[in-house]
Design a protein around this nucleic acid. Structure first.
Lengths: 133, 133
DNA sequence: GCAGCACTACGAAATAATTCGTTGCAGCCG
DNA sequence: CGGCTGCAACGAATTATTTCGTAGTGCTGC
């Protein structure tokens, strides 16, 4: 059942904050990202309540100011979103996506390119002989 | 002004059809993708009217059955969507996205890996010496 | 000429996402 | 004890997306 949900853009911002800062109160999240976005406190609160309802967040209400935590990991979430995006935009072709991502106006640094190359090399040697579907 | 719009999922399906099949009537698009999706004809029509309103499609109404064409190219659209996605999910880091995309359960074929590697090599040699802006 | 068919146009309903105002409650300060 | 402050809950308005039903109109075959 836990099909790793696909958060909306504003939900993703909150998840990112929590992944980065750890368990936080609504106030903390709001100060961290709501204020600069020009939102009122209740907007952040409502969003987090909705996310709790969707089981995107876990809530500890033993304190007066409830403490929230992501119910989903960062990587699985990114992967789910990526898979969906890949299917919708690139017919599920990872290579198409990768080629275009690397051709972006804001390319990767040399170090990043090296990391990518290493992964490619490893994948190539791994698929040596046991490919083709 | 022409900020290469970010089509919605169903808009993208129609654009994909038109990119692939060239200028088409609503009927053709509907037979191509609407029927199998269980939509009625007017749903496809309405969608295309909306897209025309948003200037996502160009319409030739000299014939009784209007002929539609994408007003945007496939690549610029994909790129715009990719950039948006990259920003939202990967903080704009192409390499992060690429590394995760290649680690997907449905990896690229050997040929695709080779194409990727070639691009990486070219990028690495290009960025040799002329760094950051 | 007229019936019927194919197409476009219009309006509207259903769902989801986003944003806030208002309310009610708990705890602290004097 | 009485009121002020901070917080969660609720309801509601707004906007975007998706989906159709109905209506109007021009063409074609008889």
């Amino acid at each position: 059942m836990s099909t790793t949900p696909k958060p909306t853009p504003s939900e993703l911002k909150i998840l990112k904050f929590l992944w980065q800062h750890g368990p936080s109160t609504v106030r903390e999240v709001h100060e961290g990202i709501g204020v600069s976005a020009g939102h009122s406190y209740t907007t952040t609160l409502k969003q987090m309540q909705i996310m709790h309802g969707k089981s995107l967040l876990v809530r500890d209400d033993s304190q007066r100011a409830h403490v929230f935590q992501p119910a989903v990991g960062e990587e699985p979430t990114q992967r789910a979103m990526l898979d969906d995006f890949m299917d919708r935009v690139y017919e599920g072709s990872a290579s198409q996506l990768v080629l275009q991502a690397l051709g972006t106006s804001r390319p990767a640094s040399s170090e990043e390119l090296e990391a990518i190359e290493q992964l490619v090399q490893r994948l190539r040697s791994e698929s040596d002989g046991e490919s083709e579907a």
